[in-house]
Write a protein that binds this DNA or RNA. Sequence first.
RNA 1: GCCCUCGUAGCUCAGUUGGAUAGAGCAAUCGCCUCCUAAGCGAUAGGUCACAGGUUCGAAUCCUGUCGAGGGCACCA
Length: 593
Amino acid sequence: MKQDIKDLIHTGLQTLVSQGQLELTELPEPQLDRTKDASHGDFATNVAMVLAKLARTKPRDLAQRLVEALPESPLVDKVEIAGPGFVNFFLAEGAHRSVVPQILTAGHAYGRSDIGAGKRVQVEFVSANPTGPLHVGHGRGAAYGAVVADLLAAVGFEVHREYYVNDAGRQMDILGTSVWLRYLELCGEELRFPSNGYKGDYVWDIAATLHREHGDAYRVEVEQVFADLPLDASIEGEPQDQAGDKEAHIDGLIAAAKRLLGDNRYRYVFELGLNTILDDIREDLSQFGIDYQEWYSERSLTESGAVNKAIERLRESGHIYEQKGALWFRSTDFGDEKDRVVVRDNGQSTYFASDIAYHMDKLERGFDRVIDIWGADHHGYIPRVKAALQALGDEADKLEVLLVQFAILYRGGEKAQMSTRSGEFVTLRELRKEVGRDAARFFYVMRRCEQHLDFDLDLAKSESSDNPVYYVQYAHARVCSVLRQAAEKGMIVDPTPGTTNLERLTEPHEEALLRTLIRYPEVVESAALKAEPHQVTQYLRELANDFHTYYNAHQFLVDDGVLRDARIKLILAVRQVLRNGLGLIGVSSPESM
RNA sequence: GCCCUCGUAGCUCAGUUGGAUAGAGCAAUCGCCUCCUAAGCGAUAGGUCACAGGUUCGAAUCCUGUCGAGGGCACCA
């Protein structure tokens, strides 16, 4: 629809140029907007004002000439010039009604398009360290990333969803060591658990599995473990002057675990922790309606030599230097604040080095676009990753990083505090259990991603019209209910999506609904291209509102069979669009509530 | 200190990349069930778009500065 009007304007402008009334070597893409006010028609363009200066005429005069040059179209009822030089388009009534058979014919496909032209897009999201269950902050990234991916797929991109698994590195060593220490406690050893260890209950669970299945096979005397270790930081109640360095302490414990257990046994404990948590994360996300094409292992990058290869490539192109025994990447050449270490003086490559290799690999896999969805706390990371891609000669523009701000939970008007340090935090699983999958998915994508999200738990649970999820779902259930009533009364619903009887849809409420239904494909396209799922939730609320208003104002199951048929076709179309829209954001469409 | 994001109705947020009289939902006030689900609908009221300059036909939107909120500035991951 929108494109049809744009084509009309384009033709009109071409006519003016060929008549010599407008001197332009290149025609601009006409900007066409939905009007805010119905008295301004359906669409408005500002081309006359934009081109007035070039044409050296008054905007309104140019608008007049453009209107005269516009070709005839059955879609357009009338064209008006308004204000400083807007050209307003009023769509013909028939043009509105034709959307109903269009929706009923397309069904699930209504709103989908192929503007992505099969281009391959990789979307990486969540990628939380497998050191514990996902919490509510990850949940927002999960919901947002999933919808962005689904939206892109809906408009014709070939989407590859990926989770980057940080299965290497110090944090994972800390997890493995935490599990082992808890295991030792289960064996009856008494020890002081490190302040920097993972203290969540899930660590106990993993330790219990190890103890149950292997008895004392991994037991070592505690005295050996803690011998000659740097002191831990002081905990509450202890004198400050005995405080040590908690980082050095935990590193000492990791070294002790590796030494005392030996490679094989250490590896087993490490893997047990990793796999248990990763399985949990997989299941959690799957139950949240999110599935990936690939779980990409960070460790595989080191083992395959990809990290060394990436560093080597940077060295060859002269972007690496050595200082104090470490290898540095000169990222400042590409706009970063400071240079970054890729290999530490102890020979270990950094997390950043893995990230360079990973992103190099992404581009080598031939994606046309690569999208990373990160928590807002990682934003300082963007310049260095882009710098690395530039240094490698890859097109850094192919990488888009979308940042998701934190979600803050509110309960009873109060902030629901959470702290990862104590190991007591609200997990995504708990949230799903409390408010349900539908509400969680909807609430998470209701706001622009760069906006802090106030997640009102009470509202998400409430079964009232205040709750936008219920409001939209209820509209869907209501349509279903009407159809059930029709069946009970023996009224036959004609399923053929023809235009028959639709000319009976003349009420203002019906006009409003038709206008909203027509907009849906534009909303999906815009939401997809701008990565803004909230446009969909916003739209769904509007559509539901239009429907509820209509429902209250008019009876659908009227005696007049022709009118009844028209109205049923209209609400069938509404139901289809509600279903399509809810499906896009991963929310169910209940038949009854 | 430097960098990033943000500041719109009492609250939570939209605002179609610079367009017409800045819009919703809560909360407030007043109405609507003999009727397909009142888990709904209508109406009223609510604004110096943080502040001050600038850019132009035109600014909530772009630029500069100030104030305020959050985040980032490791040989951590």
